[in-house]
């Protein structure tokens, strides 16, 4: 598979591979936010996400010389993040992972579409319910839905990030969405 790059991206990666520290910093600048956000969504733990994101970016720099432009750079990077998260999960107890209700309103400032205060509260409640449902998906289902619907990776990028076959990406994404919809349906119907 060949991957298309803008000249700018390509040059930045090449310069970073050659050891140009300014280029490395710029490369990090352009990807750090999405890696950190991804890990926040995946772990529901901002502190852990920061640690893992730091480690992801460090490993990215250390193994950059092995990157051969075969997979999209973002997929390559997310793969490092996913692996580090998996390793971390393995080290932690299962209880920690399945624990829900890790979201608090303080941490996650919800976007204001500026409805009235009452509507706003209702909307926030529904969002929280959705995030809880997301938290309760099994790790593979949660990961695929975050990569697709929040981080907006293509199916191809997801397949590369997770080393899954395309068919697996499609069927797990569908199962994740089905589980979320099943969970949310009562809340949606309530507001009709």
């Amino acid at each position: 598979m060949t991957v298309e790059y803008t000249d700018e991206q390509y040059d930045l990666i090449k310069a970073s591979q050659a050891g140009d520290e300014k280029a490395m910093a710029r490369l990090l600048e352009s990807h750090a936010s999405s890696v950190y956000a991804f890990l926040c969504h995946l772990s529901s733990d901002a502190v852990l996400a920061e640690d893992l994101a730091q480690e992801t970016m460090l490993r990215c720099l250390q193994s950059l010389k092995y990157y051969e432009f075969r997979a999209p750079f973002r997929a390559w990077l997310f793969r490092i993040a996913v692996n580090l998260f998996r390793d971390h999960r393995r080290r932690m107890s299962v209880r920690r992972w399945t624990k829900s209700g890790l979201y608090d309103d303080e941490q996650f400032n919800l976007p204001s579409t500026d409805p009235g205060p009452h509507q706003q509260a209702e909307q926030r409640e529904r969002s929280q319910e959705l995030y809880r449902a997301l938290d309760q998906l099994s790790p593979p289902l949660r990961t695929v839905v975050i990569l697709r619907d929040i981080q907006e990776l293509s199916y191809e990028e997801i397949a590369q990030s997770l080393k899954w076959r395309m068919g697996t990406v499609k069927s797990r994404l569908f199962r994740a969405r089905k589980e979320l919809a099943d969970r949310m349906r009562p809340f949606w119907e309530e507001q009709k």
Binding site: M24, A32, S33, H41, L110, I146, D149, E152
Partner: peptide, 26 residues
């Protein structure tokens, strides 16, 4: 329902990258 989920997930707020993040990694 799927479209609704997608919209809601796309709007999920994300934390801003902590200050000095890149400098720390470098």
């Amino acid at each position: 329902e799927i479209m609704r989920l997608r919209r809601a997930l796309a709007a999920k707020p994300a934390h801003a990258l902590p200050a000095r993040f890149v400098r720390t990694v470098m």
